[in-house]
Amino acid sequence: MTRSQARIPAKERGKGRILPREEGAASLDLVIAVMAFLASLAFGAVLIADRMAQTWQAGLAGKLTVQVLPEGESLPSAEVDKAIAVLRATPGVLYASALSDADNLALVEPWLGHDAVIAALPFPRLIDVQLAPGATPDIAGLEKKLTSVAPHAVLDDHGRWIGRLKSTANNVVLSALAVLALIAIATAATVAFATRAGLTAHREIVQLLHLMGARDRFIARAFEWHYFMAALLAAACGAGIGALVFFAAGSLDQIGLTTISFLPPLGLALAELPWLALIPTAAAVIAWGTARLSVIAALHEFY
């Protein structure tokens, strides 16, 4: 065996790549990585919004709150006791109890801060009511009973609040999905452009293969595979950085360093991070399909 025959093992002969390795493809990789990073942020927003909507709904479901509003400077304590008595006598109510002053202060602290002046403000008295699982009390009837014994009482079943939260969460999800769709379109356009550029750069090779009887799908396969792998790797890097950002944000939440306490935690749970793997997969599929369509369309220009 001669020296040049020994260079490549026999079983490797005949497996040379049809297309040469792409030069100057780093910019495409960078664009796809950035797109994937942005997509991971948008997708993370979807996951967080969805999780928070569920958490809020689960937290408030089965609960009622009764506020007994102050009359001028004084609080009608007798009305609080009467309201609690009515609530406890209502079928389906497991528990009804007034919040302490300390609990009240803790509730407003995220918005108003911790200040001695706040303690002097005329707060309403809040009664926390826990319903039995599956209980559906007649809210309108209960409200009527409450106001008959405690005219300053206001019943809140959180329906409006939950509705607003759900609507906000839905808006976040829809906006993030729109961003994801835009990113997908931009990625497809970028890959289409790169495929066209690749076809122009390799026109000689493509034309030769065509003249030798290569079917369009054979030539397209060489491009598809190239862009599939490039998009998969670049998007994995971008989504990986996105995952790190969410992981870091989650770590800050855990050590209590979030700056705005009433906002939901901005990190993703470890169990949610694998969802970000969908991004490189989607990017690779988009690149594959776009490259295939672009090559086949371009090959139709040949006889």
Partner: peptide, 26 residues
């Protein structure tokens, strides 16, 4: 000729296009 392919791979190209495997034409 395709400059990035070896002499062997250049010659084998029509057989690859015909769907033959390397073991069949080596």
């Amino acid at each position: 000729l395709l400059d990035h392919l070896s002499a062997f791979d250049n010659v084998a190209l029509p057989l690859r296009l015909a769907g033959l495997r390397p073991a069949e034409y080596r």
